[in-house]
Amino acid sequence: MTAVAVTAPPSVHVRPAADVVTMLRRNLLRAKRYPGLTMFLVAGPLVMLLLFVYVFGGAFGAGVAPGVAPGADGRAAYLAYITPTLLILTVVGAGQSVAISAAMDAAGGITARFKTMAISPGSVLSGQVLGTVLQALAALVLVLGAALAMGYRPDAGVLDWFALLGLFVLLGLALSWICVALGLNARSVETASNAPMILLLLPFLGSGFVPVETMPTAVRWFAEYQPFTPIIETARGLLAGGAGLEAAVAAQAVGWCVVLGAAGYAWARSLYRRERRL
């Protein structure tokens, strides 16, 4: 009996870094192909900026800055108060777009196809997250530019700007991982588009639009201890050149970003490994 030699299949060399770059390029091309998602990141904060400053700002400004009279001075004060909040909401909006993208890939069978290919498993999700963070940073520049055109003048120094950039990147990574998980867990693209809405509501229930001191006790307690309040206060303090920024609050902001990012990463990786529910 003649022995038959069996040749082992060639080993596949997975290159995680190269795969991440490939998936990042894919998601940037998708953003170019669907400009409506990118425009949504900027349009929402811009509409709120114009509405809250020019309609409500004259009255609200007197409440956020003691001694400021309603009217033009109130609008200027409220513009300085609300701009950090809208920058945060821009990052949150980017997370909503990645939830939709993740759900589209899952519903279209693209995610299942990626699982059969010789690519690093983590690169598929990492490319989506990194692409979303880059989109968010581009949208932040446009929203901040609009605020500057309206008269906003931040007092941030060079180190403050770098710290603010780091905060936005960290927040973008954290929210993107959570939203990727929400998109993978959704049963449809429509559900995925609505799932991150709670993240858009939280800044309204914090110090984003009015000081927490003006809220009833129960609401104030929630506002003080939810994640977005220290994040908003840190961004506000950095844009003000560090004025009124407490180290403990900044540490809470970074801590919340790390905790949310780690939880979102673990959830997203778990959902990616399992079969999609029918």
Rank of each mutant, 00 (worst) to 15 (best):
A69H: 10
P84I: 09
W161N: 11
S101V: 13
V249T: 12
A146K: 00
L148N: 09
D160K: 01
G237N: 02
A149Q: 08
P35F: 04
P121L: 08
L134N: 01
G244M: 03
W221S: 07
V12Q: 11
T116D: 10
V98R: 07
L24W: 06
L89A: 14
G244S: 02
G206T: 04
L37F: 13
L46N: 11
F56S: 11
C257F: 10
R75I: 03
T85L: 08
Q128E: 15
W161R: 10
W267H: 08
V254L: 15
G206P: 00
P154T: 11
Y78C: 11
H13L: 11
V42T: 11
L159E: 15
L200F: 08
P216T: 12
V169D: 06
R75C: 07
S123G: 10
V21T: 05
Y272T: 00
L49P: 01
A8H: 09
V91K: 08
P227H: 12
T7C: 07
A186M: 07
L24P: 02
T22C: 06
R220G: 10
T111E: 15
L165M: 14
G74A: 12
L165C: 09
F60Q: 10
P227G: 15
Y225T: 10
W177Q: 01
A31G: 01
R33T: 07
P70L: 07
R25K: 12
